[in-house]
């Protein structure tokens, strides 16, 4: 459904050229839900805007729904829904009217559009706000309206640029529940960007991590975590000698990495921590070491990013 080859985009600014996207290649199959993750300024929005025909690429090619984004932008626009990072609803316009205008812009049948607007107002919990103007909505309400606008015509392919930013936990959960249901019902392909690591982790079938204009990882969240981060086992013992002894054993566990001793404690990274921990403790018993505490920390996507770049996603932003 979405294919990109060596997409680049350079912005000319007074301070010099900004290489926002440098050689992006990706493929998204029909019905997939892919999350684009990366720090501020990584190039996520720029990539999405190129895929949605809003921004011409500096070089490279991309096709969405079988149509080239540069040569056949009109065909692409007919197939996609787009929720941009900024608010899409006008400040002087009423909620319901904006939805109906969107329906007309998407060339929907007026009766179908009216029904769909009511459905979305209910689904995104905008009931009671139909006749309010955009200026009088809260940040989260505006965001939910943006999502409703993008969903209006039930697009085959939906692009969401940080759809849940500014939503409270209830609204986020509600939105995801509906998106999940919508996907099951329609088989919609969804491409989203987010800063919420847990969201990418639980919702996306595939996570693409972008940093500094480049794609640095592309896999299922589970595999990314297993391959690039791994589980961190920590045990504490009753003396430093025991800890040294334990470190030796830890280093020999299957797939052990980054063994570290600190006082009475030893930490080691392995692929399947929960399966390996009992074996580790058994071996420690065999040599007579006393295990005081033991724990396994499952990795997050942040650990994946840290493993890839040496920086934490929580702290890094480019440009």
């Amino acid at each position: 459904m979405i294919h990109a080859r060596d997409l680049t985009r350079t912005f000319k600014t007074k301070a010099g050229a900004v290489e926002a996207v440098r050689g992006l290649s990706l493929d998204v199959a029909e019905g997939e839900l892919v999350a684009f993750l990366g720090p501020n300024g990584a190039g996520k929005s720029t990539s999405v805007r190129m895929l949605t025909t809003l921004l011409p690429p500096t070089s490279g090619t991309a096709s969405v729904g079988g149509s080239d984004v540069v040569a056949e932008p009109a065909a692409v626009r007919r197939k996609i829904g787009y929720v941009g990072q900024k608010n899409g609803a006008g400040v002087y316009y009423k909620v319901r009217n904006e939805l109906l205008t969107q329906g007309r812009a998407q060339r929907m049948d007026p009766a179908v559009a009216r029904r769909r607007a009511d459905e979305l107002i209910e689904m995104l919990e905008l009931t009671g706000l139909e006749d309010r103007t955009g200026a009088k909505l809260s940040g989260g309400q505006k965001r939910r309206l943006d999502v409703a606008l993008g969903l209006m015509h039930n697009p085959e392919i939906l692009f969401l640029d940080e759809p849940t930013t500014g939503l409270d936990p209830h609204s986020r959960a509600n939105l995801w529940e509906h998106i999940d249901r919508l996907r099951k019902a329609t088989g919609m392909t969804i491409f989203l960007t987010t800063h919420y690591l847990d969201e990418a982790d639980t919702m996306a079938e595939r996570v693409m991590i972008m940093d500094n204009g480049r794609l640095i990882a592309d896999d299922t969240p589970a595999r990314l975590k297993a391959d690039l981060a791994g589980d961190r086992i920590s045990v504490s013992l009753t003396s430093t000698t025991e800890a040294e002894q334990a470190a030796g054993i830890a280093a020999n566990l299957p797939g052990a990495r980054e063994t570290e001793v600190c006082g009475y404690s030893v930490a080691v990274t392995v692929r399947e921590g929960e399966a390996i921990l009992p074996e580790f403790i058994r071996r420690l018993h065999e040599v007579g070491a006393q295990v005081a505490t033991a724990s396994v920390k499952r990795p997050t996507l942040d650990d994946v990013f840290l493993g890839l770049t040496g920086r934490s996603l929580r702290e890094s932003a480019v440009g």
Binding site: R49, T52, T53, L54, A74, R77, R78, I80, Y82, G84, Q85, K86, N87, G88, A89, G90, V91, Q102, A105, Q106, R107, D146, L149
Partner: peptide, 17 residues
């Protein structure tokens, strides 16, 4: 200008209009 700075114009530019 106002709708250009917010995402409103972009929203319409991504439709077949």
């Amino acid at each position: 200008t106002e709708e250009l700075m917010s995402g409103v114009l972009e929203r319409f530019l991504a439709t077949p209009m």
